[in-house]
């Protein structure tokens, strides 16, 4: 029972404590005097701010993409599918969660390789030029999909999508069909029905799903290590600080950036009623 209380919470508190230690650059060792030096160094460092910004942007983009992809699937399951079809669809939607996460990331390395399946199929349907164009874009493009932020974005979206489908589906299932019909009977066009009836009722589900997609993207360092240009994200940077550089205090302080962001995010989510939708 108290495993978590002891081991987990203890470790977290230890981590806070560590972040107040100072790292001595010259000796390359951790000095055990408390202070805000490390925190100051974290914020004053331009690179670190850029890393945080990039990671947050990526998390936001992934979350939005997941919501847009999850919605039609969830909507179909909740409204049109018969029970049998729905069971099959749900199974197919959760299926990826049951496969090894690392393998799923790795699969995209195979697919997005220059001679891999994705460029091959794009060429077949005559979109090869489109891919080249996308890779030529500044910032998100790169040598190949495997080495671009665009590729990283696709993989993140793929990996976390199921976490969005489930809560959105649960929320949409609770939208009474009669509301939608009533809105239609009262003369609302489909777009209006969506905006003023379905969307507000589905929002808690979307927010609940976004907690997962956002938090998971924020802390992940596996995907950026395997796919993407070598620009670091929060997770990778933390790993570098604690591993190669041995600067545990800075790594610890850095870890609190995603935690702080998530705390803010969760507070907003709670306001929007996401916890009832989980």
């Amino acid at each position: 029972m108290l495993w978590l209380g002891g081991v987990y919470l203890g470790s977290l508190l230890g981590l806070v404590w560590q972040s107040f230690y100072t790292f001595d650059d010259f000796a390359g060792k951790v000095r055990h005097d408390l202070g805000f030096d490390t925190w100051e160094r974290l914020w004053s460092n331009e690179t670190n701010r850029i890393i945080v910004g990039r990671t947050v942007l990526m998390a936001l983009a992934v979350t939005i993409a997941c919501a847009m992809l999850a919605y039609p699937l969830a909507y179909f399951m909740a409204r049109y599918a018969t029970r049998r079809v729905k069971a099959v669809l749900l199974f197919l939607a959760i299926m990826p969660l049951w496969s090894n996460y690392l393998v799923r990331v790795y699969s995209w390395k195979l697919i997005m390789a220059k001679e891999g399946a994705l460029p091959w199929s794009l060429d077949k349907v005559g979109l090869g030029k489109g891919l080249e164009w996308a890779l030529d874009l500044p910032y998100i493009g790169g040598q190949g999909l495997t080495f671009s932020l665009l590729g990283q974005f696709i993989v993140f979206t793929y990996v976390w999508l199921p976490y969005m489908v489930l809560p959105v589906h649960a929320a949409l299932e609770r939208v009474p069909r009669s509301f939608v019909e009533a809105a239609g009977d009262l003369g609302a066009r489909p777009a209006t029905v969506f905006r003023s009836v379905i969307w507000p009722l589905a929002l808690p589900g979307v927010v609940a799903g976004s907690i997962f997609t956002f938090s998971l993207t924020l802390g992940d360092y596996i995907v950026p290590t395997i796919i993407g240009n070598s620009k670091p994200v929060i997770g990778a940077q933390v790993y570098v600080y604690q591993g190669v550089a041995g600067n545990l205090p800075l790594a610890a302080a850095f870890t609190f950036v995603p935690i702080a962001i998530m705390a803010v995010y969760l507070t907003i989510a709670k306001r929007l009623g996401a916890f009832e939708a989980l």
């Binding site: 604690q242 610890a252 998530m262």
Partner: peptide, 27 residues
Amino acid sequence: TISLLLVLPLALPGIVTGIALRSSINV
């Protein structure tokens, strides 16, 4: 509090759990 605490390891990014454990094991 405890029911919230029990969900934390899934809700917080894995890297947080990882580094928290590593640092306390080190200590």
